[in-house]
């Protein structure tokens, strides 16, 4: 069941840039969907338009069945946004700034709830500190705390781990996991493909304002992903023997190994026969290694199309 439904959404900036071009997208309740795309593809514009930060020319966005323009009060209460950049009032304390956001979203102060949020983000000890006294990573945590201050059903994370250290990145991943387990729908944009690969249930590829495809991550990996077998030899080979020409092997630069691409889903991978044929040629094997193409490889290949 979809919690966000976007149909024929178009957005043109004042300078004429067609940022979104008839975008259609359904986000399912409780899932993590990763929006991938190169810089300027329209990822942030899409998020900003759903949240109400930008106006759209045509199309419709519905959040939990409510229209984001005519029923904005209902839709916005459901959404928490963590923008790409750190934007905080430097002279406010951590607690006050999080409480401010909760109030803005129409909720009374709830000390217990805010305490829980701050504790989850390791901010409770710093609640009385001014924002300007915090490190960059801590400020990023405050941004997340603000987005969670009204207990949203949907969380938009726009490049949440850009420029953060490993520890915070891992904390963030754990938090996303926790939120997902609590039923929060998460829409994530990231440049770290491995992040999307690790966290997302579905991948949406967006480029030049158009959604190229939306697909289950595992299905995408299976469909687009290739496995490769690297066969290393004791001594260099000058050319592929005629008896191995059917395998479309690629010789490495140092000529000490060959690569064989195969489909794991195929009824026969051809590996057993290949190894037998190599043995018949008299080449002495040193080692075997397999690797799988990552989401990043898939992403790059799709963008280049």
């Amino acid at each position: 069941m979809s919690i966000i439904s976007i149909s024929k959404l178009s957005k043109v900036y004042d300078d004429g840039t067609n940022a979104l071009d008839e975008v259609n997208l359904e986000v399912n309740k409780g899932e993590i969907i990763a929006l991938l795309g190169p810089n300027g593809a329209g990822k942030t514009t899409l998020i900003s338009t759903i949240c109400g930060l930008l106006k759209h020319e045509s199309g419709q966005i519905k959040v939990d069945g409510y229209d984001t323009v005519t029923e904005y009060r209902k839709t916005r209460r459901l959404i928490g946004l963590v923008p790409q950049e750190i934007m905080l009032e430097p002279f406010e304390t951590v607690y006050d700034t999080v409480r401010f956001t909760r109030g803005l979203f129409g909720y009374p102060e709830n000390r217990k709830f805010l305490e829980d949020v701050l504790k989850k983000l390791s901010l409770w000890d710093k609640r009385k500190q001014m924002i300007k006294e915090l490190s960059g990573g801590m400020k990023r945590r405050v941004m997340i705390a603000k987005a969670l201050s009204h207990n949203p059903k949907i969380l938009f994370l726009d490049e949440p781990t850009a420029g953060v250290d490993v520890e915070l990145r891992r904390d963030m991943w754990s938090l996303v996991d926790l939120l997902k387990n609590n039923g929060v729908t998460i829409l994530l944009t990231t440049h770290y493909i491995e992040e999307a690969e690790m966290m997302a249930d579905r991948i949406a590829l967006i480029d030049k304002g158009k959604v190229i495809f939306v697909e289950n991550k595992d299905a995408l990996m299976a469909r687009m992903g290739k496995k490769e077998l690297t066969i290393k030899f004791k001594s260099p080979i000058t050319k592929i023997p005629e008896s191995l020409s059917n395998y479309k092997l690629k010789i490495s630069k140092d000529r000490l190994s060959v690569m064989y691409a195969y489909d794991t889903k195929a009824s026969r991978t051809g590996i057993t026969r290949l190894l037998r044929d190599i043995a018949d040629t008299g080449f002495v094997l040193e080692d075997l290694e397999t690797s799988q193409s990552s989401l990043e490889d898939i992403f790059v290949s799709l963008i280049r199309k």
């Binding site: 109400g52 904005y72 959404i79 946004l81 129409g106």
Partner: peptide, 15 residues
């Protein structure tokens, strides 16, 4: 808030 960018909160809140 406009200068700091924190105006995003007002514009994305149900106000």
């Amino acid at each position: 808030p406009k200068f700091l960018g924190t105006i995003y909160e007002h514009l994305s809140a149900p106000v």
